[in-house]
Simulated scan of single mutants.
Amino acid sequence: MKNEYFISGFCHITTEEVSVNGTVILKNKTTDFDAFLKNIYQLKELNYPKFFKMDSLSKLTFLGAEILLKKEAIPSETPKNIALLFSNKSSSLETDRKHQKSIQSESEFYPSPAVFVYTLPNIGMGEVAIRHQLQTENAFFVFEQFQAEFLQKYTVSLLQEKKCEHVLCGWTEVDGETRHGFFYLVSQNGKMPHTKQNIQNLYTQR
Rank of each mutant, 00 (worst) to 15 (best):
K163L: 09
W171P: 05
T136K: 12
G124H: 02
C164Q: 04
T23S: 14
Q42Y: 13
E144T: 10
A35Q: 15
Q147Y: 08
L151R: 08
E4W: 06
T30C: 09
N198F: 15
S56D: 09
L84K: 07
T136G: 15
A129W: 00
V18W: 05
A139M: 15
Y41D: 02
S102C: 01
S107R: 09
Q205V: 04
L60P: 04
H99G: 09
K53S: 15
T78M: 01
L43S: 13
N28P: 00
N88T: 10
V174H: 04
K71M: 04
Q188E: 11
V24F: 10
E161S: 14
E144V: 03
T172C: 07
Q205C: 07
Y203T: 01
K38L: 00
F141S: 04
C164T: 07
L63T: 06
I103L: 13
T61M: 03
H166G: 07
A139C: 15
T14P: 01
K163C: 01
S157Y: 15
Q133I: 03
M1V: 05
K59Q: 11
Y154H: 08
S187F: 08
H132Q: 12
K53W: 14
F51A: 08
N198E: 14
F33Y: 08
N138C: 11
K27P: 06
H166Y: 14
A65K: 02
F109T: 12
L158D: 05
V24T: 15
N28Q: 03
L26S: 01
K162F: 05
L85Y: 07
T23V: 09
E45N: 15
L69K: 02
S90I: 12
Y203F: 11
H99S: 14
G181Q: 06
P121D: 06
S112F: 03
K162M: 06
P111N: 03
T78C: 03
E16L: 05
L63A: 06
T172I: 10
K53G: 11
L85W: 06
Y41W: 07
N21M: 10
N189T: 12
L69Y: 00
Q42E: 12
G9V: 03
K71G: 00
A83C: 13
N189M: 12
K27Q: 09
P121Y: 01
I40W: 00
K27D: 04
A129Q: 04
G9I: 02
S58D: 05
K89G: 00
D55C: 09
